[in-house]
Protein backbone atom coordinates (compact mmCIF):
# COMPACT_ATOMS: atom_id res chain seq x y z
CA UNK A 1 0.00 0.00 0.00
CA UNK A 2 1.19 3.46 -0.82
CA UNK A 3 1.79 5.41 2.38
CA UNK A 4 0.96 9.09 2.04
CA UNK A 5 2.83 9.78 5.28
CA UNK A 6 6.12 9.06 3.53
CA UNK A 7 7.52 12.42 2.32
CA UNK A 8 8.34 10.88 -1.03
CA UNK A 9 4.69 10.03 -1.72
CA UNK A 10 3.24 13.05 0.05
CA UNK A 11 5.14 15.53 -2.11
CA UNK A 12 3.51 14.78 -5.49
CA UNK A 13 0.16 14.03 -3.88
CA UNK A 14 0.07 17.46 -2.18
CA UNK A 15 1.25 19.06 -5.40
CA UNK A 16 -1.81 17.70 -7.19
CA UNK A 17 -4.20 18.83 -4.45
CA UNK A 18 -2.99 22.43 -4.06
CA UNK A 19 -4.45 23.95 -7.28
CA UNK A 20 -7.89 22.42 -6.64
CA UNK A 21 -8.07 23.47 -2.99
CA UNK A 22 -6.65 26.88 -3.84
CA UNK A 23 -9.28 27.35 -6.55
CA UNK A 24 -12.07 26.27 -4.19
CA UNK A 25 -10.76 28.72 -1.57
CA UNK A 26 -10.78 31.64 -4.03
CA UNK A 27 -14.32 30.85 -5.23
CA UNK A 28 -15.69 30.42 -1.70
CA UNK A 29 -14.05 33.59 -0.41
CA UNK A 30 -15.22 35.60 -3.42
CA UNK A 31 -18.79 34.42 -2.93
CA UNK A 32 -18.59 35.05 0.82
CA UNK A 33 -17.20 38.57 0.30
CA UNK A 34 -19.92 39.33 -2.24
CA UNK A 35 -22.68 38.23 0.16
CA UNK A 36 -21.02 39.89 3.13
CA UNK A 37 -20.29 43.25 1.54
CA UNK A 38 -23.14 43.68 -0.95
CA UNK A 39 -26.04 41.39 -0.10
CA UNK A 40 -26.25 41.09 3.70
CA UNK A 41 -28.34 43.90 5.22
CA UNK A 42 -27.07 46.39 7.79
CA UNK A 43 -27.38 45.39 11.43
CA UNK A 44 -30.23 46.86 13.49
CA UNK A 45 -27.82 48.13 16.14
CA UNK A 46 -24.41 48.40 14.57
CA UNK A 47 -25.30 49.55 11.06
CA UNK A 48 -22.61 48.83 8.47
CA UNK A 49 -19.75 48.44 10.92
CA UNK A 50 -20.73 44.89 11.80
CA UNK A 51 -19.46 43.76 8.36
CA UNK A 52 -16.01 43.54 9.95
CA UNK A 53 -17.45 40.41 11.59
CA UNK A 54 -17.18 38.50 8.29
CA UNK A 55 -13.39 38.52 8.55
CA UNK A 56 -12.96 38.93 12.28
CA UNK A 57 -14.99 35.92 13.41
CA UNK A 58 -13.76 33.37 10.81
CA UNK A 59 -10.14 34.37 11.39
CA UNK A 60 -10.66 34.10 15.16
CA UNK A 61 -11.98 30.56 14.63
CA UNK A 62 -8.99 29.84 12.39
CA UNK A 63 -6.50 31.22 14.92
CA UNK A 64 -7.68 28.56 17.39
CA UNK A 65 -8.24 25.79 14.84
CA UNK A 66 -4.74 26.14 13.35
CA UNK A 67 -3.26 26.11 16.84
CA UNK A 68 -5.01 22.85 17.67
CA UNK A 69 -3.79 21.33 14.38
CA UNK A 70 -0.25 22.54 15.15
CA UNK A 71 -0.31 21.14 18.68
CA UNK A 72 -1.79 17.83 17.52
CA UNK A 73 0.88 17.54 14.81
CA UNK A 74 3.47 18.40 17.46
CA UNK A 75 2.13 15.67 19.74
CA UNK A 76 2.15 13.17 16.86
CA UNK A 77 5.74 14.09 16.01
CA UNK A 78 6.77 13.56 19.65
CA UNK A 79 5.05 10.18 19.86
CA UNK A 80 5.68 8.61 16.46
CA UNK A 81 8.65 10.74 15.33
CA UNK A 82 7.09 11.14 11.89
CA UNK A 83 8.79 13.74 9.73
CA UNK A 84 5.55 14.72 8.07
CA UNK A 85 4.00 15.69 11.43
CA UNK A 86 7.04 17.83 12.25
CA UNK A 87 6.77 19.59 8.91
CA UNK A 88 3.02 20.09 9.35
CA UNK A 89 3.50 21.67 12.80
CA UNK A 90 6.13 24.06 11.52
CA UNK A 91 4.03 24.99 8.46
CA UNK A 92 1.03 25.79 10.67
CA UNK A 93 2.76 28.35 12.88
CA UNK A 94 3.11 31.33 10.49
CA UNK A 95 -0.39 30.84 9.07
CA UNK A 96 -1.94 30.62 12.54
CA UNK A 97 0.01 33.69 13.64
CA UNK A 98 -1.32 35.56 10.61
CA UNK A 99 -4.94 34.68 11.43
CA UNK A 100 -4.37 35.72 15.05
CA UNK A 101 -2.95 39.05 13.92
CA UNK A 102 -5.90 39.59 11.57
CA UNK A 103 -8.28 38.78 14.43
CA UNK A 104 -6.64 41.30 16.76
CA UNK A 105 -6.37 44.11 14.20
CA UNK A 106 -9.88 43.73 12.74
CA UNK A 107 -11.30 43.39 16.26
CA UNK A 108 -9.59 46.62 17.19
CA UNK A 109 -11.00 48.35 14.10
CA UNK A 110 -14.46 47.12 15.11
CA UNK A 111 -14.05 47.97 18.79
CA UNK A 112 -13.14 51.61 18.22
CA UNK A 113 -16.42 52.73 16.60
CA UNK A 114 -18.70 50.33 18.55
CA UNK A 115 -17.29 49.99 22.05
CA UNK A 116 -15.41 53.28 22.00
CA UNK A 117 -11.94 51.81 22.44
CA UNK A 118 -9.28 50.16 20.29
CA UNK A 119 -8.30 47.78 23.04
CA UNK A 120 -9.43 46.60 26.46
CA UNK A 121 -7.55 44.24 28.75
CA UNK A 122 -10.53 41.95 29.15
CA UNK A 123 -10.15 38.18 29.29
CA UNK A 124 -11.10 37.49 25.66
CA UNK A 125 -8.79 40.06 24.10
CA UNK A 126 -5.90 39.29 26.43
CA UNK A 127 -6.05 35.52 25.87
CA UNK A 128 -6.11 36.06 22.09
CA UNK A 129 -3.01 38.25 22.44
CA UNK A 130 -1.33 35.46 24.43
CA UNK A 131 -2.15 33.15 21.50
CA UNK A 132 -0.17 35.45 19.19
CA UNK A 133 2.79 35.32 21.59
CA UNK A 134 2.57 31.52 21.65
CA UNK A 135 2.72 31.37 17.86
CA UNK A 136 5.69 33.75 17.82
CA UNK A 137 7.41 31.64 20.49
CA UNK A 138 6.90 28.47 18.45
CA UNK A 139 8.25 30.19 15.31
CA UNK A 140 11.24 31.58 17.19
CA UNK A 141 12.10 28.14 18.56
CA UNK A 142 11.85 26.59 15.10
CA UNK A 143 14.06 29.31 13.62
CA UNK A 144 16.67 29.24 16.34
CA UNK A 145 17.59 25.55 16.53
CA UNK A 146 19.77 24.18 13.73
CA UNK A 147 18.80 20.53 13.83
CA UNK A 148 15.25 20.32 12.41
CA UNK A 149 14.32 17.33 14.59
CA UNK A 150 15.40 19.03 17.82
CA UNK A 151 13.73 22.27 16.70
CA UNK A 152 10.49 20.39 16.03
CA UNK A 153 10.63 18.71 19.44
CA UNK A 154 11.18 21.97 21.33
CA UNK A 155 8.44 23.75 19.37
CA UNK A 156 6.04 20.84 19.94
CA UNK A 157 6.54 21.02 23.71
CA UNK A 158 5.82 24.76 23.76
CA UNK A 159 2.80 24.29 21.47
CA UNK A 160 1.41 21.57 23.75
CA UNK A 161 1.87 23.65 26.90
CA UNK A 162 0.08 26.52 25.16
CA UNK A 163 -2.97 24.39 24.38
CA UNK A 164 -4.46 25.35 27.78
CA UNK A 165 -4.98 28.80 26.32
CA UNK A 166 -7.47 27.53 23.72
CA UNK A 167 -10.36 26.72 26.11
CA UNK A 168 -9.50 29.90 27.99
CA UNK A 169 -10.07 31.93 24.80
CA UNK A 170 -13.28 30.11 23.97
CA UNK A 171 -14.88 30.22 27.40
CA UNK A 172 -13.44 33.57 28.56
CA UNK A 173 -16.69 35.32 27.66
CA UNK A 174 -18.63 32.91 29.88
CA UNK A 175 -16.20 32.51 32.76
CA UNK A 176 -15.50 36.20 33.34
CA UNK A 177 -16.99 39.61 32.83
CA UNK A 178 -15.74 40.81 29.50
CA UNK A 179 -16.33 43.75 27.22
CA UNK A 180 -16.43 41.28 24.36
CA UNK A 181 -19.85 39.77 23.68
CA UNK A 182 -20.42 36.00 23.90
CA UNK A 183 -20.54 33.67 20.91
CA UNK A 184 -23.39 34.03 18.41
CA UNK A 185 -22.92 30.82 16.48
CA UNK A 186 -21.66 28.14 18.87
CA UNK A 187 -24.92 27.98 20.77
CA UNK A 188 -26.93 24.84 20.24
CA UNK A 189 -30.16 25.44 18.43
CA UNK A 190 -30.77 28.79 16.79
CA UNK A 191 -27.69 30.94 16.39
CA UNK A 192 -28.53 34.50 17.40
CA UNK A 193 -27.62 35.79 14.00
CA UNK A 194 -29.95 36.30 11.08
CA UNK A 195 -29.60 33.74 8.21
CA UNK A 196 -28.77 36.50 5.70
CA UNK A 197 -25.73 37.34 7.86
CA UNK A 198 -24.92 33.78 8.85
CA UNK A 199 -24.48 32.67 5.20
CA UNK A 200 -21.52 34.96 4.38
CA UNK A 201 -20.02 34.25 7.80
CA UNK A 202 -20.00 30.49 7.22
CA UNK A 203 -18.81 30.88 3.61
CA UNK A 204 -15.87 32.97 4.78
CA UNK A 205 -15.12 30.37 7.45
CA UNK A 206 -15.07 27.56 4.87
CA UNK A 207 -12.98 29.74 2.52
CA UNK A 208 -10.40 30.42 5.24
CA UNK A 209 -10.19 26.70 6.03
CA UNK A 210 -9.55 25.86 2.35
CA UNK A 211 -7.00 28.68 2.12
CA UNK A 212 -5.24 27.28 5.18
CA UNK A 213 -5.10 23.76 3.74
CA UNK A 214 -3.70 25.01 0.42
CA UNK A 215 -1.10 27.24 2.04
CA UNK A 216 -0.03 24.67 4.62
CA UNK A 217 0.55 22.17 1.78
CA UNK A 218 2.66 24.72 -0.16
CA UNK A 219 4.80 25.33 2.93
CA UNK A 220 5.08 21.63 3.73
CA UNK A 221 6.24 20.81 0.21
CA UNK A 222 9.27 23.10 0.15
CA UNK A 223 10.16 22.20 3.73
CA UNK A 224 10.14 18.52 2.75
CA UNK A 225 12.46 19.26 -0.20
CA UNK A 226 14.81 21.14 2.13
CA UNK A 227 14.89 18.41 4.74
CA UNK A 228 15.21 15.53 2.25
CA UNK A 229 17.67 17.31 -0.04
CA UNK A 230 20.26 14.51 0.10
CA UNK A 231 17.87 11.81 -1.05
CA UNK A 232 17.58 10.36 -4.50
CA UNK A 233 13.89 11.22 -4.98
CA UNK A 234 14.47 14.93 -4.30
CA UNK A 235 17.28 14.93 -6.87
CA UNK A 236 14.79 13.47 -9.36
CA UNK A 237 12.15 16.06 -8.47
CA UNK A 238 14.67 18.87 -8.94
CA UNK A 239 15.70 17.35 -12.26
CA UNK A 240 12.10 17.01 -13.49
CA UNK A 241 10.94 20.49 -12.39
CA UNK A 242 13.71 22.37 -14.20
Amino acid sequence: MLSYAAPKNFYPFAGKLIPWIGFAAVVTLAFGLYLGLFVAPADYQQGQSYRIMFIHVPSAWMSMFVYVVMAAAGAASLVWKTKLAEVLASACAPIGASFTLITLVTGSLWGKPMWGTWWAWDARLTSELILLFLYIGVMALQASIDDPRRAARAAAVLALVGVVNIPVIHFSVEWWNTLHQPASVSKLGMPSIHPSMLAPLLLMAVGFKLYFVAMVLVRMRYQILERERHTQWVAQVVESEK
Binding site: D43, Y44, Q46, W115, G116, T117, I193
Partner: peptide, 13 residues
Protein backbone atom coordinates in the same frame (compact mmCIF):
# COMPACT_ATOMS: atom_id res chain seq x y z
CA UNK B 1 -14.35 56.55 30.11
CA UNK B 2 -17.60 55.04 28.87
CA UNK B 3 -17.54 51.93 26.65
CA UNK B 4 -20.58 50.38 25.00
CA UNK B 5 -21.20 46.67 25.20
CA UNK B 6 -23.22 44.91 22.60
CA UNK B 7 -24.86 41.54 22.69
CA UNK B 8 -24.43 38.54 20.42
CA UNK B 9 -27.52 39.20 18.30
CA UNK B 10 -27.22 40.31 14.70
CA UNK B 11 -30.23 40.99 12.46
CA UNK B 12 -31.53 43.43 9.86
CA UNK B 13 -33.57 46.38 11.18
Amino acid sequence: EVLAKHDENYMPP
